[in-house]
């Protein structure tokens, strides 16, 4: 139990290194979710509304990609960004930007697949009414996304949970460089292997509390706005 006590002491002391790590982790994961959202919401909605040959295969693959192993995504992005890779010129490997790219790719299938399911369910209900009102394809996508906004919050949270909790991609493409690309999860892995259990424990606690806080806020906002907008 002494580790837990020292962990709290570390948090209470406002350790600068600790907070830099927390800040970077949040910035990387939130940016990745934002990017995945901008791409994933319309992508999921369009997939929900369109019918084309091979659509079932696309849906199955997308659903399957919700469980992409982070290390594989990390490895793929590593190969793309490495000096000899196709995007090596950009010099992005071992930067926070690379971590954002990798996490966005990891989270995109989750957001797109959950959006597809939510929007498709609502489309069954809305289809005739929107068709009768003469709503075009763009309007349909916008209407369905807006009217499923409360359910889509859950999709975003699932994506954020995935990004904030994973180690594999940020470790591979970020490199766990002290003060530059070290996140909470990579720090926990490192400190544990070094035997510095108080710091690992402190970071673990902060990570869990942050994820709970973000979920609680989203829940509150959802309940409040649902009360007002139905």
């Amino acid at each position: 139990m002494s580790e837990t006590v020292s962990a709290w002491q570390l948090i209470a002391s406002g350790d600068a290194t600790l907070f830099a790590i927390v800040r970077l982790s949040l910035a990387v994961s939130l940016t990745a979710v934002a990017i995945a959202m901008v791409v994933g919401l319309p992508l999921g909605a369009i997939l929900a509304l369109t019918r084309f040959p091979g659509r079932s295969a696309v849906v199955v693959i997308l659903n399957g990609f919700m469980g992409l192993p982070p290390v594989v995504v990390g490895l793929t992005v590593y190969l793309l960004l490495s000096r000899s890779g196709p995007l090596g010129e950009l010099g992005l490997l071992f930067t926070p930007t690379a971590m954002v790219i990798a996490q966005a790719l990891l989270v995109l299938p989750i957001i797109a697949a959950l959006t597809r399911q939510t929007v498709e369910d609502l489309w069954h209900e809305y289809r005739e009414e929107l068709t009768a009102m003469g709503v075009g394809p763009t309007g349909q996508v916008a209407t369905l996304l807006w009217d499923s906004r409360f359910s889509l919050v859950t999709a975003l949270l699932a994506g954020f949970g995935r990004a904030a909790a994973e180690v594999g991609t940020v470790m591979i493409v970020g490199g766990n460089i002290d003060g530059f690309t070290r996140t909470m999860t990579t720090a926990i892995a490192l400190e544990t292997s070094k035997g510095n259990l108080p710091l690992a424990m402190g970071l673990g606690l902060i990570l869990i509390v942050l994820i709970l806080l973000i979920n609680a806020t989203a829940w509150g906002v959802r309940a409040w706005s649902e009360q007002r907008a139905g």
């Binding site: 209900e125 809305y126 005739e128 009414e129 209407t143 009217d147 499923s148 409360f150 907008a229 139905g230």
Partner: peptide
Amino acid sequence: KPVMLRRS
């Protein structure tokens, strides 16, 4: 059974 959009 008209569809009510999830709005006011």
